[in-house]
């Protein structure tokens, strides 16, 4: 059992897959000698050389499109967007090209590419460098979307992402890069579409995404002190989304709160809430509540950013509100 940071776990997954499969290569802005904007690809340039860890110009459409074309031609590229916000520049290549090629072509091609991108607020990076955009991607058939919360999940899900024959959007929370956690020596690939029950409970189900998993666990401790036993579930991938685990949990707890850092409106939480309502509304003893960011861009100044980012206290308040 080793203690590793989230970033080291990602770096290990990239290294191991590149050692295992010569078709895996990395392209992106400053991923080479520089080691990536946040340092995720550090050391890989030295080990694998420029051919396999290739700096691109600042050209997000060409980065995502070149990864798509190379994947169609049989490679397994991992491309990095420095910030997920830059997907706006390259969205067509992802959602109209990579995501749809297999379907449009009648199943006669695979696009085994990974688009890695950090998202999330908390470092004072303001409106164009701090968003959480998973709901954009999960809305598109043909894409898979992973968003690990822990080092072990970061490692295992990235292995799966690289080995997957579909385009995978791999969303890392930038505030988690330095977070340490245990990664077992025998850790391996973690299948997509398999939620993790992070804490078992009986009174309320809290489904949390990415960094909000930590807030949910913190909230669960606060709630426990008040006699409320919360179950915390991390879906780990929002496409595919493991609704079975969520529904089983809600059947047991009869109560649901969904928490994510993304803007609440039109977010992944709305989808999860709607599916639970459609499937098992009769099991619910309380209204469903979503916890998410307010409907504003991410602000810069620390007190404003702090007010924007949802946290444990918002989850506690939501649980208390629906139970009152």
């Amino acid at each position: 059992m080793a203690q590793k940071t989230y970033m080291q776990a990602l770096n290990d997954a990239l290294r191991e897959e590149m050692e295992r499969d010569p078709n895996v290569l990395i392209i992106g802005e400053d991923v080479g000698q520089f080691g990536g904007c946040f340092g995720v690809t550090k050391g890989l340039f030295d080990q694998f050389g420029e051919k396999r860890v290739r700096d691109t110009p600042i050209t997000e459409s060409a980065i995502v499109g070149a990864a798509t074309g190379a994947a169609a031609a049989g490679l397994r590229p991992v491309c990095e967007l420095m910030f997920v916000d830059f997907i706006g520049v390259s969205m067509d290549q992802l959602f109209n090209q990579a995501a749809k090629m297999r379907y449009m072509f009648g199943g006669k091609t695979t696009i085994p590419m990974v688009l890695r991108a950090p998202q999330g607020a908390g470092i004072g990076a303001a409106a164009q460098h701090s968003q959480s955009l998973e709901s954009w991607f999960m809305h598109i058939p043909g894409l898979k979307v992973a968003m690990p919360a822990t080092p072990e999940d970061a490692y295992g899900l990235l292995l799966t992402a690289i080995r997957d024959d579909n385009p995978v959007v791999f969303l890392e929370h930038k505030v988690l890069y330095g977070v340490e956690g245990e990664v077992p020596d025998n850790a391996g690939a973690i299948p997509f579409g398999q939620a993790k029950i992070c804490r078992e409970g009986t009174d309320v189900t809290i489904v949390a995404l990415s960094k909000m998993v930590y807030s949910a666990l913190e909230a669960a401790e606060t709630l426990a002190a008040k006699g409320i036993n919360a179950e915390v579930i991390d879906p780990r991938t929002v496409s595919p989304l493991d609704m079975d685990t969520i529904i089983e949990s809600v059947k047991k707890t009869h109560s649901l709160v969904v928490a994510h850092e993304a803007v609440k409106t039109g977010g992944a939480g709305a989808e999860i809430a709607a599916q639970v309502a459609e499937e098992i509304i009769d099991y619910l003893d309380t209204p469903i509540m979503r916890v998410g960011a307010p409907f504003t861009p991410v602000p810069f100044s620390p007190p404003l950013e702090e007010a924007f980012i949802p946290g444990a206290e918002d989850i506690v308040a939501a649980v208390e509100q629906i139970r009152s």
Binding site: I27, S61, A62, V64, G65, A66, A67, T68, G69, A70, A71, A72, A73, G74, L75, P77, D92, Q93, N96, Q97
Partner: peptide, 13 residues
């Protein structure tokens, strides 16, 4: 739409 994809195929070659 095709330009970046052709470029990627060129990269693979």
């Amino acid at each position: 739409g095709g330009g970046p994809i052709a470029t990627g195929a060129g990269m693979a070659i």
